[in-house]
Write a protein that binds this DNA or RNA. Structure first.
Lengths: 340, 340
DNA sequence: CTGAAAGCGCTTACAG
DNA sequence: CTGAAAGCGCTTACAG
């Protein structure tokens, strides 16, 4: 059915290795020969067989994007991540495979790698001591990370700039006159213990808060809508309430906002809400829409693919540590203290 | 580095073809031989090479999930789709590749297929006259569809049961006493013209509405938050307003809900809202959370993988047309007419 | 600038 | 029940 390289060679009147070199460009070829080969390929509608290429060559042109499954909080922006990575991979001439394991099943990852199917891996949602890192290192397969483990010195990674995120959020709140902030944080499960993002987001608030004289009161909510409702109850029960909420828990925030509305507390008149790491779509779903400080997920995913492709193609040597700046988008949920 | 089939054969003291047959089970093997082979494989930590398998055999164990990109409305539940498909594929012993093209770039799809990498394809988000269908048919590659084109007689597909969806929604509204319903529909772009879901969702309302004496007033909103705000203005400006909104436009609904809140219209006291085809996560983001009638996206994705795998493995003959029943989840946005 | 040939690691008839 | 061997369609040294 499908044409092979030999068919093309025959039609073009050259050897099959010449066809290969014409395609890969790995050795000089006369313009005339190249044209004959190209015409033959077009006529036969020829596409090289991916398996044969992968088996014979050192590279197969397939990347894997790995996310840990069974996580509780699936944020709504994740599909954009995946789509952006897919599109960028294709633009660079790669296929993108989706891989997923429970975060503690690293053997599964190991055997996937040893099938030899993929040239490199992109790891999503790194935890502080991510068990996937040593597995991929031992397998000697190139990989890059979205997020970062605690010890990332020799690793390639792209991460949100949490320090900038914390400062942006605190500055926005301080500029609006807020002096006490209720930090709607997350409970940490066994798997996420010491999860990088939460730890770094939390830490990033301390210095700017001190600088701006803002007092932070942390509440760890369950990653669930009901966890958010309970958080509101805790918030609302305080004799003297903070004037602003800073959330790093998308799912709980939904419950918090609902409970606030039910209790007759108006956002932003009675309480200002700023959300960390929430996509535009989700931010626009609530009324009022949420003021957010978020890293640009789509850019991060595309940049991760570029990192890995550059590395595989030998265009980069040293391991880059790329921090992506977040953006503050002021929507309707934040206002000046005492605003009416 | 990695062990090959020959290494295993040598260690087990058998021929390499025996190792292959021990793995595939395609011919009878004495228990003792099988055990020796298994021990050798375990000791060498052997994993078959995926490229060699794909090249030599007829099946490579890779499926592709294809979504059209550049669509405007990315719903928040799509990642769950993809994750569910990935997990099910892995459970059945397949890798899942993500493919994406602009909906009108069918040549791109054609050349992806002709690389021979994948055993079969799952098409997402079918339109009424989807150009991908003839391409895959001509390529003689097995595929199954999530959604369906107009002419789906000979195709394998899984779709939401729109008739059931419409009836469930209208019955719920009628049971609550609503007699006039504002249908928050979508504008249709060139690409989605005659898009299956919108047409079928719209049609599905007519019969039950007639049965229950419900009057439907359709408004086509842009798929955007501002489109939803404009829709609310149109809704609110009517001298005599419908008492309920039925939405098939997730993004616009967000704007509608915001505008309603701004205008001081309370949901569900002043207006009942029921949303079609919205995921649980998004439904819980608003306050109040939304009553929804939605198909179970995760089940559909997993079922599509099963269909395709069954077909590839010769377990099914005739093309199944599977309609998945939607579920009504009553949350806080719907109430009896005149409810206080 | 181009060709003939070995080899990648499997699967699967063909023999026995 | 098992083995020896051809072949899948490429890439890439090796020659010229």
């Amino acid at each position: 059915m499908a044409a092979t390289r030999d068919d093309v060679a025959r039609l073009a009147g050259v050897s099959s290795s010449t066809v290969s070199y014409a395609i890969s460009g790995r050795r000089t070829i006369s313009t005339e020969t190249r044209l004959r080969v190209e015409r033959a390929m077009a006529e036969l509608n020829y596409t090289p067989n991916a398996f044969a290429r992968g088996l014979a060559g050192s590279r197969g042109g397939i990347l894997a994007l790995h996310y840990p499954y069974g996580r509780r909080g699936v944020t709504s922006s994740e599909f954009e991540y995946v789509a952006a990575a897919t599109d960028r991979a294709r633009a660079r001439g790669y296929h993108l495979l989706l891989w997923s394991n429970p975060i503690d099943d690293v053997e599964g990852l190991g055997s996937l790698v040893s099938e030899g199917l993929v040239d490199g891996v992109i790891l999503m949602e790194l935890t502080a001591h991510d068990a996937r890192v040593p597995v991929l290192t031992a397998a000697r397969i190139p990989f890059t990370n979205i997020g970062r483990p605690d010890d990332a010195r020799s690793l390639w990674f792209i991460d949100a700039d949490y320090e900038a995120m914390g400062r942006l959020a605190i500055d926005h709140l301080a500029d609006l006159g807020h002096e006490r902030v209720f930090f709607l944080s997350q409970t940490i499960g066994a798997a996420e213990r010491g999860s990088g993002p939460l730890v770094r987001a939390t830490r990033s608030l301390a210095a700017p808060a001190a600088d701006r004289g803002v007092q932070i009161e942390t509440h760890r909510a369950d990653i669930s809508v009901s966890g958010g409702r309970a958080a509101f109850d805790a918030f609302d029960a305080r004799p003297s309430r903070p004037t602003a909420v800073l959330a790093f828990n998308e799912t709980a925030l939904a419950g918090f906002v609902q409970a606030a509305a039910l209790a007759g507390r108006s956002i932003p008149h009675d309480v200002t809400v700023v959300a960390l790491s929430i996509g535009d779509l989700a931010a626009d779903m609530t009324s009022p829409p949420l003021t957010t400080v978020s890293p640009p997920g789509v850019e991060i995913a595309a940049a991760a693919v570029d990192h890995l492709a550059d590395r595989l193609e030998g265009r980069r040597e040293e391991a880059p540590h790329l921090l992506v700046a977040p953006a503050l988008v002021v929507r309707g949920s934040s206002a000046r203290v005492g605003h009416r």
